[in-house]
Simulated scan of single mutants.
Amino acid sequence: MNGPVVVGVDGSPFALAAVDVAAQEAQLRDAELRVVHAFLWPAMHVPSDSSPLGPPTGALHESIERIVTEALERARSRAAGLHVSHAVIAGETVAVLQAQSRTAQLIVVGHRGSGGLSELLLGSAAVHLSAHSHCPVMITRGRQDPVGPVLVAVDGSPRGQPAIAFAFLEASLRGTDLVALHAWSTWSDHGEHALGRRVDIVDLVGDAEHLRQQEERVLTEALAHHREQYPGVTVRPCLVRGRTRPTLIEASADAQLMVVGSRGHGGFTGLMLGSVSQAALHHAHCPVTVVRSGP
């Protein structure tokens, strides 16, 4: 694991909660914590030779100093001995954090914000950051100080492997179990275009138990390599016949972290930002980490 854990701050209670989580992550990973505040100039003419923060006694300078100082003090109080740095960068928040993700191992943000992070209300901006970040993005939400296992959505596709790897790492670092959930259904929407209706695969195959065994095999094979890498992690495979989104959200009620891929296939056909991943970001009962599958 290389690079810092980066947390975006804006002075809101949600950002401070993100600092708590980010400090824990940095401590678990023995990594630097970088506190980043992004800001935009007010809509007025600013001299080209002026300081990025304005005059030392200016309101913008004082506001930024307060936000950053509060976040730094919070981080240091949560994790003694943690190496904490900070950066104040002029620019649009998502663009700044996306640039930071090039050298970070994890980006942490609150699920709501104010000021510089006001756009991260789990709308298009959060989706954009999760979809385009160069490292995993953890969005803090749900219960305070959640306990329980790490929960990962498994679809059996190559795209889903980075999310599974991240979930195993988190379970190992946190010293907790890993619940690997694979939801499947006999209903397919692919027949709608040809037949004008959804198709129950059982009508075609005639053997629901055979389909269940196939899905069980998908789950087992998706986990095999990672089990070998993390023999100390207790894995609890969970095969559920049902709709993906409600199944995943329900399972998050007992988890301390949910991990999803940015795109999906098979049992999590809709697992791309804007569907299952976005549903998790909006409705999960615990923090959610979105892990990109690659370019």
Rank of each mutant, 00 (worst) to 15 (best):
L195C: 05
G58T: 10
C135N: 01
P52R: 14
G266I: 13
L117D: 00
A284F: 05
H128N: 11
R141Y: 08
R263L: 07
C286W: 06
G191N: 04
A163Q: 01
L33D: 01
T57N: 05
T176Y: 05
R143L: 08
L106F: 00
Q144V: 10
P287Y: 03
L53I: 11
V137L: 03
A22R: 00
R76L: 12
A279N: 08
A224D: 14
R198H: 11
P237I: 04
P158V: 09
C238F: 12
R29S: 00
G160I: 05
V199C: 03
E32Y: 01
I67E: 03
S262T: 07
P52M: 14
H61G: 07
V179Q: 09
A255S: 08
G11Y: 08
E170R: 10
V21F: 10
S51D: 15
R198C: 04
R197W: 06
I139D: 06
L195P: 04
H193L: 14
Q24M: 13
V96T: 09
I89C: 06
L273M: 07
W184N: 03
R102P: 00
A253W: 04
M272F: 14
P42R: 13
Q144F: 10
S77R: 15
A284C: 13
G81S: 07
T247N: 05
E170P: 03
S252I: 07
S185D: 13
